[in-house]
Write a protein that binds this DNA or RNA. Structure first.
Length: 869
RNA sequence: GCGAGAGUGGCGGAAUUGGUAGACGCGCUGGUCUUAGGAACCAGUAUCCUAUGAUGUGGGGGUUCGAGUCCCCCCUCUCGCACCA
């Protein structure tokens, strides 16, 4: 026999004779990918006969290289797309590029390559990499957000928003990142640092464009209760972010002045307990309140706080500090004079920036009062306890009955909240209000590589919108990026100079560009009509496809992207461009891809290929295993998908990503697990090829007998399980496990030659069911099995209920809840027969012995429990 | 502190309505075939034990004929928010 040794996929194999029978993923995958690129079988069009299904994964930033997170995200999506298509849905599954953003500018600065060139080249290279995974996208709908054909419509939406006052400009203190040289939205600041570069964020006064997301705060919040297809924690994060709280605005008159100070409180019931007031140091009224004898000290305090880092300012363990302004204000309920303080823990951007301090019932005020020896007055007494302001050790924030509160004494505090609010309203000193944590979305960025904001500044007419007919305001390409002196648009004469659309005089163009989250806030809608030239959206197409039935992406977008996209959907609806309220019916947030870290004492973090047999390849010292963490370049615990695919094939990469963990959980990368998946695909490959001669041309029989009954039952049980596991619940790992069981049953099935039809049936079901997971090998095997049409066109298999029926059942017999035996009975056996059989079991008898049988519980189809004394 | 989620073999993970805990895969052990095995196939693999036996799903209680699953208390971990008035 001819013996050949060669290396295939990194594994040495020996092949006796027929080489064509070897599973060779690279050849098969190249063949089918070529077929998909040429024939474009995954292109969608509107079809009223079929039920639509819009499946979308979060589009990638074109960094140039895909990572395992992409592979996982898109593999999950592709299973759903292929499955739904096989089920007969009209599936829209598009892909494109979130193409504006800073890395392109950084590449330009570092390597002198133009952002546009860099971006489009990256897109070309990433498209090839995605195609190498075998994803079933409708590539005809592809676009990049940096295409003028895309962003021109974004500019139009902006103009419409501007008309309606939903986009406006104001000067404000913004979050400034010195490293990125730009402004950040509140959502983009994490622990006081830039979400991208982690540089410390500084406050800076700037004129900025804002989107009035606060107008939609209520609707965005209300819908969080209706998005039943979203994970609860994402909804919780959004609710938290919107931060709606009901309360009261109360006006305090400043003693001996006409001025009033407005506070926001959720606890008007504690107003009689206010013993001082705290203002944010940057409160605009603060300076007017400083009396001359306090001037020097207070101003020093204000400077001190201003210099403090914003992160520390809101960190919670900041030491509470404050200073008396010298002024007093009057409690509108009892006319009491209380001192006004400035306090470092009062935030200007929440509520009104001023707080009535009730030390007895607020922990922060309590600590402040203790420190500065201010009075603590109890106004709410809990049941069964008597609080005393002089002796209490912490604030009481629970509910109780009012005291020291004049006509409200004796009322429970919930009733008093209403009563005091109403009373204040009648007196003209306050009113019930609602307060939000959510701020308007600042969208100006002082960057080049983004969508230009279509506004012209005229000395006479002010900010004038660019006429719709002049759109797009194109980003000029003839710029040089140096990384210094701010955005190159500000010094680009041809771009900068424009005539005022109103008066025609020479004017200046806006040089800021949009936050790139604006592009990703509506791309899913544009996919429904990417070539539309009469407006942002073709309403018919958008209404046919939207909302997205299933959206899949990372949890890191729980607040920013997902909230902005919801907001934009409502904007588009109110601009009469679409009819839906919410963009994404169902949301799946997949877990991160993690891997064990490895470290060398001398060389620090090591890449997997820098470790050989537990030793560092650089110095041969033993490595130290670190924690399992999210794959990241900095920790070097990364696997390059391209290399992985080269070694094992895309099907193996996909299979492992789907099998090793359920999609919403973190996935721990494990080389041996990958090999296990590769082995399984080899097993499937051989199961078909080794039996090919036996089953070719064989019809699947209508009725079967003998051992074949069991295999047919297993086949149908598997179809049932896999269908249920994929549909709706996305339990891909258990679906794959079920097919593995079927394959094991096929291997164990004997004698094969007696029942070729049933064997064929089982093998075909295996191939069809695996297709959503590993499409290349399945297409190939389907062809090998003699089919002319693609496997996807054969449809998803249906369960033959008759084949599931069994004649005999194995029941467990318990004595006092413990398994003591098993009996086999016919399915139609009655309760008496089953009981008699169970009691007759030898081992069961031993445990019953001479004891008295109290009760016998028969759970049909499952077990018998004999209860003895 | 608030909110969400999790805790099951050596590891990743399974277990409709409470009904045989540990599917499937990895790893490990033994075997077959081999010059060879890091291939393939077969068998075994929760723990303790001589055992047909006992124990076992973070800990402690409870409900039940029966609890990983339901109820109460506690512990640990992960994530998000956090001086939000």
């Amino acid at each position: 026999m001819l013996i050949i040794y060669f290396l295939s996929n990194g594994v040495a194999v020996r092949c006796g004779g027929i080489m064509s029978n070897l599973y060779n993923p690279n050849d098969i995958e190249a063949k089918w990918q070529k077929n998909w690129i040429e024939k474009q079988p995954f292109c969608a069009s509107m079809d009223s006969d079929k039920e639509k299904y819009y499946l979308l994964e979060m589009f990638p930033y074109p960094s140039g290289r895909i990572h395992m997170g992409h592979v996982r995200n898109y593999a999950i999506g592709d299973v759903v797309a292929r499955f739904k298509r096989m089920q007969g849905f009209n599936v829209l599954h598009p892909m494109g590029w979130d193409a504006f953003g800073m890395p392109a500018e950084n590449a330009a600065i570092e390597h002198g390559i133009h952002p546009a060139k860099w971006t489009y080249e990256n897109i070309d290279s990433m498209r090839v990499q995605l195609q190498r995974i075998g994803l079933s996208y409708d590539w005809q709908r592809e676009f990049a957000t940096c295409d003028a054909d895309y962003y021109r419509w974004e500019q139009l939406v902006f103009l419409k928003m501007y008309e309606r006052g939903l986009a406006y400009k104001k000067g404000s203190s913004v979050n400034w990142c010195n490293d990125c040289n730009t402004v950040l939205a509140n959502e983009q600041v994490e622990d006081g640092c830039c979400w991208r570069c982690h540089n410390e964020v500084q406050p800076k006064e700037l004129e900025q464009w804002f989107f009035k997301i606060t107008d939609y705060a209520d609707e965005l919040l209300e819908w969080t209760d209706k998005l039943s297809g979203w994970p609860e924690r994402v909804l919780a994060m959004q609710r938290n972010w919107i931060g709606k709280s009901y309360g009261c605005e109360i006006e305090f008159t400043v003693a001996d002045q006409a001025e009033k100070i407005k506070v926001f409180t959720t606890r008007p019931d504690t107003l009689y307990g206010a013993t001082f007031m705290s203002l944010a140091p940057e409160h605009p009224q603060a300076k007017d309140l400083i009396t001359s004898d306090q001037k020097a000290d207070v101003e020093a305090f204000i400077d001190d706080v201003a210099r403090q880092d914003k992160g520390d300012r809101t960190s919670g363990d900041l030491e509470k500090k404050g200073i008396f302004t010298g002024s007093y204000c009057i409690n509108p309920l009892n006319g009491e004079k209380i001192p006004v303080f400035l306090a470092n823990f009062v935030l200007m951007d929440y509520g009104t920036g001023a707080v009535m301090a009730v030390p007895a019932h607020d922990q922060r005020d309590f600590e402040f009062a203790k420190k500065y020896e201010l009075p603590i007055r109890v106004v709410i007494q809990p049941e069964g306890e008597v609080l005393d302001g002089d002796t209490m050790e912490e604030a009481f924030t629970g509910s109780g009955v009012l005291t020291n509160s004049s006509q409200f004494d004796g009322k429970d505090n919930e009733t008093a909240k209403e009563g005091i609010a109403t009373f204040l309203d009648e007196q003209g000193n306050g009113r019930k209000t609602v307060n939000y944590r959510l701020r308007d979305w600042g969208v100006s960025r002082q960057r080049y590589w983004g969508t230009p904001i279509p506004i012209i500044y005229c000395d006479d007419c002010g900010a004038v919108p660019v006429p719709e007919t002049d759109l797009p305001v194109k980003l000029p390409t003839d710029v040089e990026l140096t990384g210094e002196g701010g955005s190159p648009l500000a010094s680009h004469a041809a771009f900068l100079q424009a005539n005022c659309p109103k008066c025609g005089k020479i004017a200046k163009r806006e040089t800021d560009t949009f936050d790139t989250f604006v592009e990703s806030s509506w791309y899913f809608a544009r996919y429904t009509c990417p070539g539309h030239t009469d407006g942002p959206l073709d309403k018919d197409a958008a209404n046919y496809w939207l909302p997205v039935d299933q959206y899949i992406g990372g949890i890191e977008h729980a607040v920013m992207h997902l909230l902005y996209a919801r907001f934009f959907t409502k904007i588009l609806r109110d601009l009469d461009m679409i009819d839906v309220d919410e963009p994404f019916t169902n949301l799946l947030t997949q877990g991160m891809v993690c891997k064990e870290t490895q470290r060398c004492e001398e060389h620090g973090w090591l890449y997997p290929e820098q470790v050989d047999d537990g030793n560092c390849t650089l110095c041969n010292k033993p490595i130290v295993l670190g924690r399992t963490e999210k794959m990241s370049k900095s920790k070097k615990n990364v696997i390059d998908p391209n290399q992985l695919i080269e070694q094992y094939g895309a099907d193996t990469a996909r299979l492992f990503s789907l099998f090793a963990a359920p999609p919403e959980k973190d996935l721990e990368w494990n080389e041996q697990g990958v090999e296990g998946c590769y082995r399984f695909l080899n097993r499937v490959w051989r199961a078909v090829n080794d039996n090919l001669e036996l089953i070719s041309g064989v019809e699947v029989p209508a009725t079967v007998s003998g051992d074949a009954v069991d295999l047919r039952r297993k086949t149908n049980q598997t179809i049932k399980k896999v269908s249920a596991d994929i549909d709706g619940s996305f339990h891909f790992n258990t679906a794959i496990a079920a097919v593995m069981e079927l394959v094991n049953a096929i291997y164990a099935f004997k004698p094969k030659q007696d029942h070729p039809g049933v064997l064929r049936e089982a093998l075909e079901a295996t191939v069809v069911m695996l297709n959503p997971f590993v499409p290349h090998i399945c297409e190939e095997l389907w062809q090998v099995l003699g089919h002319q049409q693609g496997v996807e066109l054969c449809g998803w298999p249906t369960v033959d209920e008759a084949a599931l029926v069994t004649t005999e059942l194995t029941l467990v017999v318990q004595v006092n809840g413990k398994v003591r035996g098993k009996i086999t009975v016919t399915v139609d056996a009655d309760k008496e027969t089953i009981e008699a059989e169970a009691l007759a079991d030898e081992n069961v008898q031993r445990f019953i012995a001479d004891k008295q049988v109290r009760k016998v519980i028969v759970v049909p189809g499952r077990l018998i429990n004999i209860v003895v004394a």
